[in-house]
Design a protein around this nucleic acid. Structure first.
Lengths: 266, 266
DNA sequence: GGTTGTGAAACCTTTCACAGCG
DNA sequence: CGCTGTGAAAGGTTTCACAACC
């Protein structure tokens, strides 16, 4: 594993596990909802249910941030919102550029969740000259020629790539050269980036394929469960998958778990 | 852990770890590209580079599927494509419905990656009556009233939710009631589903927040590294900072790592 | 009473390193 | 020789369960 840094020699204090970091936004969302309903405090149990994780995990996660709760009472909603926001770096606002304004790019530009958190869409960029000037989500699209200028002048550190696969690497290179150090990639490609640049990848078809795997397994199980010595069907795996809680109909662990996109210090 | 079913006589073999399952689509994509270039065989090293993981991991992953390689040579591309496709359940085709045809829904409908794998968009559904009949990606949008009928008549097991947050739970309930057992959720909500239904969640703003966390940390490190006794900045982490990795510009481990969306047995 | 915070155990994932085979 | 396949070690994550505290 060539990976340059990543390792970080044990980073004492403030050594928040990746798995925990990935869940903080989930807690933040749940807390924000509570805050809007003016709920003053929550127990780990309640908050965990709202965020779709279990309470032991949530308490452990919070323990990495510090001791922000009160025994016998719970957590102060407002205070926690602030602490988590600060930890995630959302108390400042991050200018973001979106490159590739097709349907997906437009969807991203219109997505309210950005502005509500510490993100601001600084510019929309597309290679198609006929798009230039056209407003999307109230922001005029700019031509790729401007990419470097835009990134530099706005001090953009985070870029979103929503171009076709073929254009992604070049866009990535230009973003990085202009100063971007974090990239959210929606194109179905593995991006090469220099050391020190983080890439996260979101891939629709990969998510579906993972679902298909489990779906197939369900079908196999059904068949196998009733057929004892049945067909040479795709061998019903262990189980792991589904089934876990009682017959409850509440979400129990929807959040992060263990896969797909991830930060990679390049 | 109230383990509902799970029992199953321990069905040995075929116990593929979740982390591995999440990477199979990555390998498949890389292999498909090689296949298109008519490359007959690959070594674990080459394939790993193309998929953005390291070779030891890749070999371990493949070892769960069986021994499909040849020592001293590598893996047969076509054969591996087939084996992985089969393992993921992509040799059959999965009808999928997309609910909520806004920008995101349209982007999904237009996304080529679906059809190319074993997925077929069986229907597009939206609650807005004025959308009804309008073709998106060549498929006419149908009104939500038809949801149950569409799901049943097409034998749909996988549903994609791209509605606003407020509508997601209701849509989810209806999909599940009609027979859907796997859901890909793009709405920023935690969905409640009965036991046995898998949910995967893709959340744009969460991905950005995770990037922001690392971005912030980078800034903190820089400041701290040069300031020894500097400002009371957000507590600078350790700081492996400066030069340490090679100057390589290749991606090393972009793929899955350990967070975000995941299957959740409900 | 109730609920947090946390060591310790259990579990899962990645990485190492090399035996085994073509 | 080269490369796979895999035990074993290392590291990370989740869960347990209970002491500490309000």
């Amino acid at each position: 594993m060539a990976t340059g840094r990543t390792h970080r020699p044990a980073t004492r204090s403030r050594g928040i596990p990746e798995a925990t970091v990935a869940r903080l936004p989930l807690y933040l969302r749940a807390l924000t909802a509570l805050s809007e309903r003016s709920v003053p405090t929550v127990s780990s149990e309640e908050l965990a249910a709202a965020a779709g994780v279990n309470s032991a995990k949530l308490r452990k996660d919070f323990s990495y941030l510090g001791s922000y709760g009160t025994r016998g009472v719970g957590y102060d909603v407002e205070y926690l919102v602030y602490q988590i926001s600060r930890e995630l770096g959302l108390t400042q606002d991050w200018p973001v550029v979106i490159v590739g304004i097709g349907n997906l790019g437009a969807a991203l530009a219109n997505y309210g969740g950005f502005a509500s958190r510490g993100f601001r869409v600084a510019a929309l960029i597309d290679a198609d000259p006929s798009m230039a000037g056209k407003p999307v989500a109230g922001i005029p699209v700019q031509h790729s020629d401007e990419l470097e200028t835009i990134v530099r002048e706005n001090g953009v550190h985070i870029g979103v790539i929503a171009t076709p696969a073929g254009a992604a690497q070049e866009v990535c290179d230009r973003l990085v050269a202009a100063g971007v150090t974090s990239i959210l990639n929606f194109a179905p490609t593995v991006l090469s980036v220099p050391d020190g640049v983080d890439v996260r990848k979101v891939d629709l078809s990969i998510e579906l394929q993972i679902l298909a795997f489990h779906e197939q397994r369900k079908a196999g199980e059904e068949a196998a469960a009733r057929t004892a010595a049945g067909v040479p069907a795709p061998a019903a795996t262990d189980a792991t998958t589904a089934a876990d809680g009682a017959k409850r109909t509440s979400a129990t662990d929807q959040g992060p778990d263990g896969d797909v996109p991830a930060v990679m210090p390049a």
